[in-house]
C-alpha cells in the first residue's frame, strides 16, 4: 500500500492550474446539450408550436403555465448548482419557494374549480391531452436528465439523493417549460396535475439514480 507521504507526492508532482469556473461550465454544457436535444426531439415529434401562440400571448393561463414550470426549473437549477459543491445545501428559503409555487398553483386550480359548474370539471381536469401530456414531458426530460447527471458525476455532491432529485426537477421542469410552447391546454387543474406529474416523475427518477450514480 502507498504511504500517505508518497500519495501526497504523487498528487502534487506536476500539478496543473485548475480550470477556472469548471463547475458552471461543465453543468452548463451538460444541461445545455440536454436542452438542445430536447428541443430537437420536440420538433421531431412534430409537436410544433401551439397554433394559437400569437393570441395566447395575451392570456393569463399562458403566462401562469410558464411561471409554474419556469420557477420550478429555476429552483431545480439553483439547487443543482449549490449541491454540486460538497458544502452546498438547499436553503430553507428554497424549500419554501418550491412549496410556495406548488401551493400557489394549487390555489389557482382550486379557485378555478370552485367557480366552474361541476359539468366542466372533466374538461378542466382532463383537458384533451391528459393521456399524453405527462408522458411527453417525461420523455422530453430524458436528454436533460442525462446531460445534467453526466455533468454532476464530476462534481462533489455530498447529498447524492438530493442532488439527483434536483437534477431531476431541473430536467422535468425544463422539459415542461419547453412542452408548454406546444401545448394549448390552459385549465389550471390540468396544468397542476399533469404538468405536475410530468415533473414529479423525473424528480423521483433523478433521486433514485442520484443515489447510485452520484456517489464518488
Amino acid at each position: 500500500m502507498t504511504t500517505t507521504p508518497d500519495l501526497i507526492d504523487s498528487l502534487a508532482t506536476g500539478l496543473k492550474p485548475a480550470p477556472r469556473g469548471f463547475v458552471s461550465r461543465r453543468l452548463g454544457l451538460g444541461i445545455g446539450a440536454g436542452v438542445v436535444l430536447t428541443i430537437a426531439a420536440a420538433t421531431l415529434f412534430a409537436l410544433g408550436l401551439r397554433p394559437d401562440l400569437p393570441t395566447a400571448f395575451t392570456s393569463p393561463p399562458f403566462w401562469i403555465k410558464f411561471a409554474f414550470t419556469g420557477l420550478l426549473m429555476l429552483a431545480g437549477l439553483v439547487a443543482v448548482w449549490r449541491l454540486a459543491r460538497p458544502e452546498g445545501k438547499v436553503s430553507r428559503s428554497m424549500w419554501a419557494g418550491i412549496v410556495g409555487v406548488l401551493l400557489a398553483m394549487s390555489a389557482l386550480a382550486a379557485v378555478q374549480l370552485a367557480n366552474a359548474p361541476v359539468a366542466d370539471y372533466r374538461a378542466l381536469i382532463m383537458g384533451k391531452t391528459a393521456a399524453i401530456c405527462p408522458w411527453l414531458i417525461m420523455l422530453l426530460s430524458l436528454p436533460i436528465l442525462a446531460g445534467a447527471l453526466w455533468a454532476m458525476r464530476s462534481m462533489a455532491p455530498t447529498h447524492p439523493t438530493l442532488a439527483g432529485a434536483s437534477v431531476g426537477l431541473a430536467a422535468g421542469a425544463s422539459a415542461a417549460f419547453i412542452y408548454a410552447f406546444s401545448c394549448d391546454e390552459s385549465a389550471m387543474p390540468f396544468v397542476l396535475i399533469w404538468y405536475g406529474l410530468g415533473m414529479a416523475v423525473p424528480t423521483l427518477v433523478g433521486a433514485l439514480l442520484g443515489r447510485y450514480l452520484l456517489r464518488w
Binding site: L11, F22, R85, T158
Partner: peptide, 23 residues
Amino acid sequence: LLAVHTRRFTYDSDRPFTAWLHA
C-alpha cells in the same frame, strides 16, 4: 486526499475552505 485532489475545482475561493474540507 484523493477526493480533495480530484474535486479541487469544486472549491469556490469566495467561501471558507474549512467548510469545504469538512464536508
